[in-house]
Design a binder for these strands. Sequence first.
DNA 1: TAGTCTCCGATCAATAAGGTCGGAGTAAGA
DNA 2: TCTTACTCCGACCTTATTGATCGGAGACTA
Lengths: 157, 157
Amino acid sequence: MLKISKKADYALMALQHIATVQSGDVTPGRVVNTKEIAEEYNIPLELLAKVLQTLAKNALIESHNGPKGGYLLARRAHQITIAQILESIEGPLGITDCSHEKDGEFCMQRENCHIRTPLLKVQDSIAQLLNNMTLQDMMGGTPLITILSPTAQGVER
Amino acid sequence: MLKISKKADYALMALQHIATVQSGDVTPGRVVNTKEIAEEYNIPLELLAKVLQTLAKNALIESHNGPKGGYLLARRAHQITIAQILESIEGPLGITDCSHEKDGEFCMQRENCHIRTPLLKVQDSIAQLLNNMTLQDMMGGTPLITILSPTAQGVER
DNA sequence: TAGTCTCCGATCAATAAGGTCGGAGTAAGA
DNA sequence: TCTTACTCCGACCTTATTGATCGGAGACTA
């Protein structure tokens, strides 16, 4: 449950790879193409292409066409949050259907629903978690614990 | 994204209702049947029945057959965590496929995957959040803010 | 003991995800 | 300048998961 889709998974891998290559000391600033990523991680080529396409459309990466073309990060790694990546692929995050209802469209259970408020709180917690974590934190040996606490430390009861 | 299923949604509503009725001062300890819940929240009767069935099988509620029958909480409300409820319906929680791989079965990307560890950290945070929240916290005017803080503190609008 | 109300398991339909195909644009190299 | 080959791009099909439904078996009350 609460599973993220494979496409989102692929997006994270690809961006992590691009970010690493780009900041690497071997060939910094190098453009990386779809095929390279697909082969490195055993991802279906055409599916990955679609994912990168979406990321480009959402201005997370820049696409360069033609021979020697490929993708490049649109912003610095520490300016791209995990939440932004996931939302680019899967749409706005919301653990329940009634999370982002427009005015006028309510779920059938709305009037008597007592769990809406608590669930929205949970959702906010998760959102904050993902918003405070950036692509930078996924690179190298960055200690994740510094990002996730105090949330991960244990919730006071 | 990260959406919980409707069945899980229904499960939460139903349990919240049963818990409230059971601890209510009108008819405390009353048995509540499927039809009553379905009508109260506009949930498809047969689908809800299936959900309650699953909850009973996982020993979260007790089923009483025959006329005047229905369901009863198997434990006290504060002893039932949200995580237990969700896992009963949707299976073990895991935001990525490789969360609970048995020995020998790995995903194709495993060997070069650099995002596994960070994602597992995120997952742990969410799990802890849901494990520290009980059915009791969803009842009445219980101030959720005491449960979710400090995480939820800044998100208040 | 009869009747009715309940829970229970197997089955079908709808939706969303996963994966695939051919086309258009662009820059490098001759 | 022109050709060529490599890239990204958009629409389509297939598969899997979820949502919803039906009929039957068991159990308690009167």
